[in-house]
Design a protein around this nucleic acid. Structure first.
Lengths: 348, 348
DNA sequence: ATGAAAGCGCTAACAA
DNA sequence: TTGTTAGCGCTTTCAT
């Protein structure tokens, strides 16, 4: 409204309350060790003046920023093709908000941006980072891990399980393997004997884990029943065609995600197979706009995306608080693997 | 890596380069008015020390933050149910990155958060804001507009068109009305004479504008051919049923978005109407995971979401630069309405 | 329990 | 062109 009217400083608040700047500061930051009447007067002044602390000045001395970076690598690919990251962001946002922390979003478009992100994180602009790594060979996660910024990863990174000497990263993930097992067991319980799997892009740990889950249950399955997909509808179509050609007797399909399941569904219809009568189909994700719109609606494995985000933030914040409190790391934050649930619709 | 080793300051750089802090600062900020040899030496020192400016200290004196807030209201509803906001964010991110600005994401969950967001923006933590307002009666946009922070809105806000005395907000929007006109004209060109419209949630300007577009072409249409929907598949189903009951002779439907079109499609199939033979259907958005997965694939009106985001950011940044340069606002940033294009698939 | 004072790291007058 | 210096607004010892 008013033209560039400089906002009130702590000094102003102190003056109005008739106390020193130090006391005003104490009250603003919780008010410990300040006698009640003074606390009240300062609060009053803050209110009347509409005082808001200058975060820059505060950060300058505390070296804290009350901000966390969320790094999402390669949005091109898959990100934002589905509600996945949106939900994740929502979970993260809620948790950060409750903790009075800000969310700084860093989207990268391939390698060129790695340096930028690395510089930003190493530059100490934020207290920590939440990083989503999609590909096994993505150098970004490790780069970030090495930047010395407290970090929690979304989804199991493709390294750090003893594969390398570097410290293992902390991450939050869905129980991809367990979810896959549940899906396949469901198909088996349905009496299906020729259960196939359309994998996801195998350069992503989630795809690998789901494949492992499939194999846990179908250890001695006909290898021709496993076809590589890529998480896309087109990949699902291609895989389904290949599957029908190779094994015409297939009677169930577990697709690595809903999108490829949708593709498979289309090919099945086109080939005259009834779902679920002839072939039962299960997806993964429970990506609503897809799973509910397919014909028939898709039975699928749901992961609680929003909760994943919330947990990532919680893990990071806990770590940050601990460092601040200088508690000698009682116990470093440990990985969290969230359970998945089978959602039954009409396709299986 | 190393334990809390404090990062080098400008002072250190200056010392190493054998110049004053002021000169070092000049070089770091572009190096105007510094002789080449010195520039080189400072650059060298920056490189060797791995110096990164302390943004807090810088902001404290410049009162600039090189950060922009992106406010997305009520993610519950529709946001993140589709890739819409993800794409928008991507466009915004690209533009901000190119301008060395950071993206601070503010997600709100209803009224409770309004105060928080208002405080944050009024608190002068960011240089400007990009705001998405979905509902006509959302108080947030106006609240923000009044907070004195340079702002650009995404989507036409439901006020400021002379409706009130307040200054009109600057916004970027898709040509909802024009897109709707194109869709309906296409149906008419197809020879359809009983063209219906399933509206979106009419508390959103986009829905209103699309309805207006429909009416532009079908000025004298049977009023029973317009049914209120709500942008959801369920709403689309309900509306389609109503439509078929009221006007069994309907031969074309323009749905306010792809999701409701998908719902309509399902009801049409269920009622044994062939698409597009008996009834042609057109959606809006070109929301890929839906539009390409429906049966038949959906003809729809595409809006360039990412470009919208990019433009919003560009508009805001231009405004910010102008203020900084103290150029007396030669011309305030003006609204931008992006064109839409009809994407033909099989449904119409 | 409160206040006085010393910076945090940087930019921007102003001098030289 | 370069250096000197005075803060930006805040937290935090250290006295009192």
């Amino acid at each position: 409204m008013t033209e560039t009217v400089s906002r009130p400083t702590l000094e102003a608040v102190a003056a109005r309350a008739g106390v020193s700047r130090a006391t005003a500061s104490r009250v603003v930051n919780g008010g410990d060790g300040v006698r009640e009447p003074l606390v009240e007067r300062v609060r009053q002044a803050v209110e009347e003046l509409g005082y808001v602390p200058n975060q820059a000045a505060r950060s300058l001395v505390t070296r804290r920023h009350d901000a966390v970076a969320v790094v999402i690598a390669e949005p091109e690919t898959r990100v934002f093709a589905d509600p996945f990251f949106g939900l994740q962001l929502r979970g993260i946002s809620k948790e950060l908000t409750a903790h009075d922390s800000q969310l700084v979003l860093l989207l990268t478009e391939g390698r060129d941006d790695h340096a930028r992100v690395g510089r930003y994180l190493a530059g100490g602009h934020v207290d920590g980072a939440l990083v989503f790594s999609l590909h096994l060979d993505d150098p970004l996660p490790e780069l970030i891990h090495g930047a010395g910024v407290p970090t929690v990863f979304g989804g199991r990174p493709g390294w750090g399980d003893g594969t390398r000497d570097t410290a293992a990263p902390v991450y939050v993930d869905s129980d991809n393997r367990g979810g896959a097992r549940a899906a396949v067991r469901h198909l088996v319980a349905l009496g299906r004997t020729r259960v196939a799997h359309i994998t996801g892009a195998l350069d992503q740990t989630s795809a690998v884990d789901r494949l492992d889950g499939f194999r846990d249950v179908m250890a001695d399955a006909d290898p021709r029943l496993v076809v590589e997909g890529d998480f896309t509808p087109a990949g699902g179509e291609r895989a389904m065609r290949e599957l029908l050609d190779r094994c015409p007797d297939v009677d169930a399909v577990f697709a690595a995600n809903d999108l490829s399941a949708a593709g498979a569904l289309r090919v099945l219809r086109e080939r005259g197979r009834r779902v679920p009568d002839d072939v039962a189909v299960i997806g993964f994700d429970d990506m609503l706009p897809v799973a509910e719109q397919t014909d028939p609606p898709l039975t699928t494995v749901r992961q609680d995306i929003e909760e994943m985000g919330r947990l990532m933030a919680r893990l990071l914040l806990r770590d940050l608080d601990r460092r601040t409190a200088k508690e000698r790391a009682v116990r470093g934050p440990s990985d969290v693997v969230l359970p998945t649930t089978l959602v039954r619709r009409a396709s299986a």
